[in-house]
């Protein structure tokens, strides 16, 4: 009986074994991105900007032109690349420390200028690459290596909500938060990312997709428990929803 190929890895993904830990959402997100790049015929035309953090080795896995950014500066680089080479598809792929802590100024200002780029934000509520320190998105009470009794708002402040923050600006065109904890979520996330890609191709302006991501290693959990923690704890503070579509605010911000 002849076998039929039902599924195969996209050729946009390299054959290199990913360094991401089991259960880490980076690998799944990058797979979806690579599939979309193939499906939308963008491989030759794409330039990724990947900054310091677990995001940085993206060029090992996705076979597209890529530039490494300094910590926090990816939206500034993406701005200049898109402005000077507007015929290219430019994606800034960043983690939470990068996007909301050291690079919060670049994040806000690229969004505020309405740059015609796509920003993908991996929010795992912790610093992964450096070994589990507090991130700007670490939840209240969450134990990290620098909040060993749990994040205390009196001394460490509150977690920052990226979508809600950017949704206070006038310029952005598209803002949505997704998760990847079930097959249905993955299918939904891919549709959202596709929209964020298409917006740029159509010259619509700034699109932002936040992915709630598990970091089982630094959360000290199994991948299954990490998924559960995303579903139960993270979505409570970071609701899964579209905040803005076609430049129209869907959900007024409560930052």
């Amino acid at each position: 009986m002849a076998r039929k190929t039902l599924y195969k890895k996209t050729s946009v993904l390299t054959d290199k074994i990913m360094h991401y830990c089991p259960g880490c959402a980076h690998s799944l997100t990058q797979k979806i991105i690579a599939e979309l790049i193939e499906e939308m015929g963008l491989q030759k035309n794409t330039i990724f900007v990947a900054p310091v953090g677990c995001a940085v080795l993206l060029y090992d896995y996705i076979d597209c032109d890529t530039v490494e950014a300094a910590h926090g500066r990816a939206p500034a680089m993406a701005t200049a690349i898109k402005r000077t080479r507007p015929d290219h598809f430019v994606v800034s792929y960043q983690g939470d420390g990068d996007l909301l802590s050291i690079g919060i100024a670049e994040t806000i200002h690229a969004a505020n200028r309405g740059e015609n780029i796509t920003v993908i934000f991996i929010n795992n509520a912790i610093y992964g690459m450096t070994g589990g320190q507090m991130a700007p998105t670490t939840l209240i009470g969450q134990v990290t290596t620098t909040t060993q009794k749990g994040r205390n708002p009196e001394t460490e402040g509150y977690p920052i909500r990226a979508c809600e923050l950017l949704n206070t600006l006038v310029a952005p065109y598209f803002i949505e938060r997704v998760k990847l904890t079930s097959s249905a979520d993955v299918i939904k996330a891919k549709k959202v990312l596709k929209k964020a890609f298409q917006n740029q191709l159509d010259g619509k302006g700034y699109s932002f997709v936040e992915v709630l991501a598990g970091c089982p290693t630094n959360w000290r959990m199994t991948p299954a428990d990490a998924n559960k923690w995303v579903d139960e704890k993270m979505t409570e503070f970071y609701p899964i929803k579209n905040f803005r579509d076609e430049g129209i605010v869907k959900e007024a911000s409560k930052c």
């Binding site: 500066r73 680089m77 701005t79 670049e106 200002h109």
Partner: peptide, 26 residues
């Protein structure tokens, strides 16, 4: 050409890095 008033000198130099990495004199 492209002129951007950046949000800081950090952004300025990294914008130059982006543009020149893309082969543009900046």
């Amino acid at each position: 050409g492209v002129f951007v008033q950046a949000e800081s000198e950090l952004a300025s130099i990294n914008m130059v890095y982006g543009a020149t990495a893309a082969g543009v004199r900046a």
